[in-house]
């Protein structure tokens, strides 16, 4: 059966680990949902700009001022694993970042 989306690739891309049952069910569901939303293709949108936002608010800025947070300790307490004030994670193998 050909499906619209490769759920396995999508799961990898979105960092989800799916059991084979989940994969099977989700493949079907995702396919059904995509089929449903493809209803949009019936719509002629050639002369319509995509909605940017609904309420026209623009140009919202803050001044370049320091606002030191009093919450540093509480933030660090949230971390599941720490070493001193660092957050500890398993070794990052591909150390390239972006």
């Amino acid at each position: 059966m050909t499906t619209k989306a490769n759920v396995e690739n999508l799961a990898t891309l979105s960092r989800l680990l799916l059991s084979s049952e989940e994969k099977a069910a989700l493949t079907q569901e995702v396919d059904a949902i995509l089929t449903y939303v493809e209803k949009l293709n019936e719509l002629d949108t050639s002369n319509v700009d995509p909605a940017r936002q609904v309420h026209g608010v623009k140009n919202v800025y803050r001044k370049d001022r320091l606002k030191a947070s009093q919450l540093r300790d509480r933030l660090l307490e949230l971390a599941p694993d720490r070493e001193g004030d660092f957050i500890r994670v398993p070794l990052v193998i591909n150390q390239d970042g972006e």
Binding site: R65, A68, L75, L76, D85
Partner: peptide, 17 residues
């Protein structure tokens, strides 16, 4: 955000929510 963008030696010092 208003957290400092300066360099510091202390880890996770210039952080906020």
């Amino acid at each position: 955000s208003g957290a400092s963008s300066h360099v510091t030696d202390k880890p996770n010092e210039h952080v906020d929510p």
